[in-house]
Design a protein around this nucleic acid. Structure first.
Lengths: 195, 195
DNA sequence: TCAGTTAGGAACCGAATGGTACCGAATTTT
DNA sequence: AAAATTCGGTACCATTCGGTTCCTAACTGA
């Protein structure tokens, strides 16, 4: 072994992820990446292979942090009933929207639209993340007494769509106005415990 | 007047719109644009000012065609009740998803995420389109006997979110599985005539 | 017919793109 | 202390980017 790194790879990755999150794949030029990651080209290409690789890695990181945290929240029985936690999730989005308009949106959602470089690998990652969210919602729904599996699956997918739609609206600064109203609709979908 | 154009500007614009729709602003390189529009640079820059201008024009065109058509559908009383028309709209999305997976999604939705070059002008256009959709849904809801204005507004926004979320999922080839389930949730939101 | 105008196309532009090669400096191992 | 290794940084690369200029061919109106 020899000279150790002068930067924290995780920290740099995190900054890269946030840039991709904010501006997407193509708009995140290499020089912009280097600037926000605060490393130089040499370090970049040595630590991460190339732009596309770090994008994939950024998606993984999003999965491991934000998505995982969300799923964990949805399945944490200490936070109340499944219904409460689902409403809590949407409440968080609403709060985000109230604060800064949620202009960054959701990286998963942005990437779904971006389809950047859209190798099959990217798409598979995105699909897996979507499924994890859907299942998180589904399991929270299934906790309720008398819950029906088929109906809960349908409801989970409806809630997922509302969630993604809301985050999309955030990109244009519209979710602040929408979030509250959407939560009302979430409540209505949660009204029937079977679903 | 002198030598007339050898191409149909509307037709060319239409092709440009579809390219932006498919791959977004940045990924639609100038050469790709010229290839799909089947014109050369000279003609391009003479007929349309530059790339950003034609993008804005493409958004306008989407507004005048797809969005307008959707709003018209939602307000066409010959097609049945407001409820029927709203379900019909989602049915169309489901059919699109069944056929090709709706991989192009919705240009409005894609652009919301893209925020391409995101001048205030772009965002204003997008916001206006979103509002038109929302109002289309709202008016269809308000047709129902005993409809409440506030509740219908909330419901319209919930439906809008489902709609956008569904189109996002289409980009990753997921809406075919989701569309049917989402329609069930739309039905549930339509259950109470006051909303 | 012919002057005036506008189309289409090619050549060309500087800047920025993602990516590579290589260098000297720093640090560990022997 | 010396050898081995790997760092950060710079210079450089071909390619592509969006955009301009200019020339010629084609068409119109008088």
């Amino acid at each position: 072994m020899a000279r150790p790194r002068e930067f924290d790879p995780e920290e740099a990755m995190d900054k890269a992820m946030r840039l991709f999150w904010d501006v997407g794949y193509e708009d995140a030029s290499l020089s912009e990446l280097l600037a926000t990651m605060e490393i130089t080209k040499g370090s970049f290409y040595k630590a991460f292979q190339d732009k596309h690789s770090i994008y994939l890695a950024a998606l993984d990181r999003y999965d491991e942090t934000v998505i995982s945290e969300t799923v964990r929240y949805l399945s944490d029985r200490n936070l109340g009933s499944g219904r409460t936690r689902i409403l809590g999730l949407f409440g968080k989005v609403a709060e985000l929207a109230r604060r800064d308009g949620d202009r960054m949106g959701c990286l998963l959602c942005n990437a779904l639209v971006d389809k950047a470089a859209e190798g099959g690998e990217t798409e598979a990652k995105l699909q897996a993340m979507v499924l994890r969210l859907e299942n998180g919602l589904f399991r929270a729904l299934m906790e309720r007494a008398g819950a029906d599996e088929v109906l809960s699956r349908e409801t989970a997918r409806g809630l997922l769509s509302i969630y993604l739609g809301l985050r999309v609206l955030g990109r244009a600064g519209l979710s602040a106005a929408m979030a509250g109203d959407c939560i009302r609709q979430v409540e209505r979908l949660l009204a029937d415990p079977r679903a």
